[in-house]
Design a binder for these strands. Structure first.
Lengths: 228, 228
DNA sequence: GTCTATAATTAGATAGAC
DNA sequence: GTCTATCTAATTATAGAC
């Protein structure tokens, strides 16, 4: 799915073999680190998937941990950018509408990039320098905007007073697990979580349950007029 | 946390060192496999935590995979037994009450054994013989009883028609993630997911959200009389 | 920028003493 | 039942040729 088949320089006398080895290493690292964790993957395995030799990884990245951080940054920045793009598109009037649309944005992302939820699952279960870095560098900044809306919703009374940690875990876990654990879903129910029907079914389920969970009264689903 | 400093037999001339090495190996394997996965843990690390030597693992277990399976069976059978005990205690009248109590039973278990959710997260993300074994041997049998109630609820009309895979993932993910990813929760919010207040807060949140998500109308919360 | 060769360490598993 | 000693293969990382 990430085959970089655009030939890069093509200028003839350069020694470049294959389109950007650094990018292929990152793509291979992303898929492998996501499903087997930092300790569960060898740089030799990454090199094999990337189609290069193992020592080349150490030319492009200082060590295994630097490769891991670069992999996280490459993936998490995509979500961050999609959030930013979504915020710009929103009318900025109704906070409840804002919350729902950001949730849709999130579900859409974790459906397309199940690796995201996998990385969080892999690193979230034990204290480590890697977890601390991931939280400080990426998760806290992305969550801060939601905390602001949450506080507003509590103050204004339209948000149910479920605590913020519980709320976030409920939404993010429900949304991402279905896609991140597609093999489990397949083995348990014979259902392919990656097919369009299932993506739609799960997105709808998550948004409906989450909206019921956080809002005291439902919002007008698609009408643009309701602002009060 | 696993220091076996209680002297066992102490009876002088026996060769027993420490109380049941096999059990200590299983306990060490459980905590390590849960947070770092099968490939992420070495038998040497397990031996060190268990306070025995690495080759002794191969006396008690055929190989690393056999140790992993024994670890899973030891943990998952606890949940299975708690379900059975709960079923025996229930009045067997109201199916909705049954569902809610089984959910409480599940949340209570994952709060006390966060390793359970961790194992499922670790193995659920990639197809493997281990995942297939886990699903066939443990998950499918435990889920079958809920599938029966679900079908009944759909047929009788008191269950919202959310698909079964979505429903199960929503409930189990919401319930277990908070406890399984306690280090993430701590790093993100400064909240200790293992303290009694948080366990109660999360259990309440999960049950309330889940009940809203699956039942068309709420049930009488604690009254024993309502049977419809 | 990518390779081959290799160093130093650690992996899972076996043999055999006690 | 538990140990020490050890085998083979795989691990991360470096050196140096091209």
């Amino acid at each position: 799915m990430n085959t970089p088949d655009m030939t890069p320089g093509e200028s003839g006398f350069s020694i470049e073999r294959g389109p950007d080895a650094r990018e292929r290493i990152l793509a291979a690292a992303e898929s492998l680190f996501a499903v087997r964790g930092f300790e569960g993957v060898s740089t030799t395995q990454i090199a094999k998937v990337a189609g290069i030799t193992q020592p080349l990884i150490h030319y492009h990245f200082k060590n295994k941990e630097a490769l891991w951080k670069a992999t996280i940054s490459r993936l998490f920045s995509k979500l961050s950018q999609e959030f930013s793009a979504e915020v710009k598109m929103l009318p900025n009037k109704d906070d409840r509408r804002y919350l729902v649309e950001m949730m849709r944005c999130y579900v859409s992302f974790v459906a397309r990039y199940p690796q995201y939820g996998q990385f969080i699952m892999r690193e979230g279960v034990q204290e480590s320098a890697r977890l601390q870095w991931m939280v400080d560098e990426w998760l806290k900044p992305m969550l801060s905007q939601f905390h602001d809306i949450y506080d507003k919703g509590i103050a204004e009374g339209w948000m149910k007073d479920i605590p913020f940690p519980q709320l976030i875990i409920l939404i993010t876990a429900s949304a991402s697990q279905f896609f991140s654990m597609a093999p489990l879903v397949k083995a348990l129910y014979g259902v392919d979580a990656t097919c369009p029907e299932q993506i739609l079914a799960h997105s709808d389920a998550v948004v409906e349950v989450a909206v019921n969970a956080i809002l005291r009264e439902p919002i007008a689903q698609q009408s643009e007029a309701a602002t009060a």
